[in-house]
Design a binder for these strands. Structure first.
Lengths: 337, 337
DNA sequence: ATTCATAAAGACAACGTTGTCTTATTTTTA
DNA sequence: TAAAAATAAGACAACGTTGTCTTTATGAAT
């Protein structure tokens, strides 16, 4: 049925090793033989069996991607990794990972032990499981984190500058005249959330605006959290004139809540988010947000993984890209009081 | 370094074949030996090398998924497939596929020829490339299409009933008093688009409402297409009171356009879509839509693939699930004239 | 007690590659 | 011109499993 290296060797009247040399572009083959072999390959439509190659080289030529659930951020990451793998000769193995769940850990263990992947990339929030980096470190499996929720100096990662991004956006709001600015925070046990929160606080402090605790609300960075936090914020005696959600998902919840309450955005309240999900530009009046440069981040992460896969040391093990503002219709001047 | 079947055999003082028997739960091993082998496996932490197994069994234990780009619909599909694979012992290989592109075809060819996947699932619009089903058919590789754009009776697929869904939604709009209903169509060369369009037309005819050609606009089923088509529709001398977009993406474009024009939804114009993307419930005032039961569809598709993978014939090769209406705030009665 | 069936376990060859070593052949160098 | 070096190509083992066949031990039936 399937055509193997032996068939090619027989047709080209040479040894299988010679065919192997031609296939892999190795030296020690004369031009004449090379042509004959190539002709045989073309005639038979031969493709090397990658499984056999994997076995003998003890490499899988696969990159594993761990993700928790296929949300918007994840699908962006995936899209980019797929594009990169499409160019390269690596395949992508996708696996669900629930941090700290025993079954997830077990599946990961087999993935690593059996060398089904040569290297691994994680998307948030998979990185929060400490078991992961331990396992990969011990197995000496290259591993890069994309936008980790927590930063571990021992693990290579690529992410955006959350602190700087949040600072920038807060500053912009202040410049536009806002000073009652609510911040919808994420889980306080994640470095990423903390950074965004601190960026917000730092900007307020720079401009001598007191940080008010009731303006800092927990949103879990999801739609419902953003919705609820917004309703609470707007119920305050002195309601904010701007709501800065630490994630776009939460910002969309905020937008929904405000519209439901009949508040005009941005005329009565300004709203902004963080992440720049593709959807943010498609919801009226366009969500102003901080762009987390996913393409850049993923590109770099894959590049780093490939470097490690090639057996080289990383010149830089942690990369943090600056964020830029992406201003759209949801932010305007505060209403005149 | 890595522990192989030989190490286990040595420790358990038996042949490698016996270990193999224990690992695979085969007969012809005494209880005593079985225990000894199991103990050795546990002590050494042995896991069988799947690559070797793949080579000898000529199976990859992998399911391939082809997708064009990681959009919302795709990420939903993926999420579900991942969940299923998480339970099973199949891995997921993800690959980008651009219909009719030579490089895509070449990559797919190698995927199949080298048996890197045992079976394949496609998400739209990958199925439109006829090369795909030819290749898979000739290679005798099991293949199931998820929501194909075109239906090929020779290929197993699972999808939603587009005609019935569109009929249902149109009927609902009519019941609410609408009769000037615009339809934002997708590419006319796809069965899926045609079905949705015909469902719309059929409902109008049932209720003796003349089908007006200027109410049928092309939207390509994406945001920009929906946006543009909506602006055109609203510029008509007799503007529609309801806009039925053949996809949620287009419906979001419609919503955006209407808000930009200062039209109130649903007070002045009703809007509805098709697909029930997760985002549709999160955009104000909640997009009414036709639910394409993705979970059901994907679940069935994977089940069918597994049946074929097990070497069994499919009892039913094509499955079409009915769609249900998911009514939210974007649809209301037409304004009184 | 002898044969026959059955169960348990091992030997060995696949699977389709690549790596190592060896052997011819050609080319260069002293 | 002989020796050394480089090139071309093949033989064969290895990678870690599973499938096939054979051998040995055990128990049942004649």
């Amino acid at each position: 049925m399937t055509v193997t290296i032996k068939d090619v060797a027989k047709l080209a009247e040479c040894s299988i090793k010679t065919v192997s040399r031609v296939v892999n572009g190795e030296p020690h083959v004369s031009d004449l033989t090379r042509e004959k072999v190539q002709a045989a390959i073309d005639t038979l439509g031969y493709t090397p069996n990658i499984t056999a190659r994997r076995l003998v080289q003890r490499k899988s030529f696969m990159i594993g991607i761990l993700m928790h659930a296929a949300g918007y951020y994840q699908s962006e990451v995936l899209s980019r990794v797929m594009d990169m793998a499409y160019q390269l000769d690596y395949d992508i193995l996708l696996q669900t990972y629930y941090p700290s769940h025993e079954r997830s850990r077990e599946k990961l263990r087999s993935l690593i032990n059996e060398k089904r992947v040569d290297g691994l990339v994680t998307t948030p929030p998979c990185d929060v499981d400490p078991y992961l980096s331990d396992l990969l470190f011990n197995a000496d499996t290259p591993y890069v984190q994309i936008s980790p929720l927590n930063r571990d100096p021992a693990v290579p990662y690529v992410t955006g500058d959350d602190y700087q991004g949040a600072y920038l956006m807060t500053e912009r709001l202040i410049m536009m005249g806002h000073w009652r600015i609510a911040f919808l925070s994420g889980p306080r046990n994640h470095r990423m959330s903390i950074d965004r929160l601190f960026g917000y606080k730092a900007a307020l402090e720079t401009y001598r605006i007191p940080v008010q605790d009731e303006f800092i609300l927990d949103s879990l960075y999801n739609f419902d959290g953003g919705y609820n936090a917004t309703r609470m914020a707007m119920a305050l005696a002195e309601a904010p004139t701007a709501i800065f959600a630490g994630s776009d998902e939460a910002a969309l919840g905020a937008l929904f809540a405000l519209r439901e309450m009949g508040m005009a955005v941005p005329q009565q309240v300004s709203v902004c988010g963080f992440d720049n999900l593709p959807h943010s530009s498609r919801v009226w009046p366009g969500l102003s947000t901080v762009n987390h440069p996913i393409d850049q981040i993923v590109g770099k992460a894959v590049e780093m993984l490939l470097t490690m896969l090639a057996g080289n040391e990383l010149p830089v093990r942690q990369v943090v890209y600056p964020c830029q503002l992406e201003m759209r219709g949801s932010v305007g001047a505060p209403p005149v009081a």
